[in-house]
């Protein structure tokens, strides 16, 4: 049974694409055949983060408009065999996506894939709605910052009302909170909302906390999903998320200044 995961946030720049790339890569590394779709039509970036921008010929919109077959548009990852990327079009706009078109693509992917990761655009407009509509599970990416938390709350409201599962009266979309750009030092100093604060406000289970890390930028510079970097705290934290997503019981890491004092100093700047 194929599971459709949407990575969404409402707010832009919080790490949706980084998370989509990490999740898709992580699931593929666990042996699941995974496709990751860029829903950010007109502002495509997933191909850059996945490092396949020079191999894009056809895109998601071409497939929806029957200008190319799904197989023509899917790009097989160079590093991992069972990982595929479906890039967005850069020259169209979000309205090029239709429920019917997206449905056809997801149905076709469902014939052979274990997971389909949908990288949502920012905002709560058409593109974001298309990305979440077919979701079984949602990763809500949030920064420990007041506007991001509020936007995440808004997105949770939409997930609970605008998705296919809700409309068809099935069990609702399973929601997970993923905190990114978390800085235990700043939380300790009272400058940043803590995990507990955010969880209390959003009240959904937390799937992981990704520490603020230079390695995220380095990874996107190189076009290598950060989860592949086992020397980076962000990479390890994403790896833990995959474990939790697949049902393992893993403690949060890199969330406390005391425990990882020396360690975090060692890794700082990576």
């Amino acid at each position: 049974m194929t599971r459709i995961i949407v990575v969404t946030s409402g707010k832009g720049g919080v790490g949706k694409t980084t998370t989509s790339a990490a999740f898709a890569t992580g699931l593929a590394l666990q042996g699941y055949k995974t496709a990751v779709i860029d829903f950010d039509v007109g502002l495509r970036n997933l191909d850059l983060i996945m490092g396949c921008e020079r191999r894009v010929v056809y895109d998601f919109v071409n497939v929806i408009h029957n200008e190319a077959s799904l197989n023509q548009a899917l790009i097989r990852d160079k590093r991992i065999d069972n990982l595929f990327i479906l890039p967005a079009s850069q020259t169209r706009d979000k309205e090029a996506l239709t429920i019917e078109g997206v449905k056809n693509v997801i149905n076709e992917l469902s014939e052979s894939f274990d997971y389909v990761v949908c990288d949502s655009p920012a905002g709560i407009e058409h593109g974001a709605y298309m990305a979440m509509y077919f979701a079984d599970e949602a990763i809500v990416v949030t920064n420990p910052e007041i506007s991001s938390v509020r936007d995440s709350d808004r997105i949770l409201g939409l997930l609970a009302s605008k998705t296919k599962r809700v409309i068809e009266h099935r069990t609702p979309v399973k929601e997970y909170l993923l905190l990114t750009r978390y800085s235990p030092e700043r939380v300790k100093n009272g400058e940043m909302l803590s995990i507990e604060d955010i969880q209390e406000i959003l009240s959904i289970p937390i799937i992981g906390v990704i520490p603020e890390s230079q390695s995220v930028l380095t990874a996107s510079n190189q076009g290598i999903p950060v989860i592949i970097n086992k020397n980076s705290r962000a990479g390890l934290a994403y790896n833990d998320c995959i474990g939790r997503f697949l049902g393992e019981d893993i403690d949060l890491r890199f969330v406390d200044t005391k425990k990882n004092g020396i360690l975090s100093k060692l890794f700082r700047g990576r």
Binding site: E145, I146, V149, R150, D153, R154, G157, V187, N189, G190, E191, M192, L193, S194, D197, I201
Partner: peptide
């Protein structure tokens, strides 16, 4: 601390949004 102010504002905000 600013984090506390943020949390307080956020709680009120979100209750109102809801």
């Amino acid at each position: 601390k600013s984090a506390n102010v943020a949390k307080e504002r956020l709680s009120i905000l979100i209750a109102r949004d809801h």
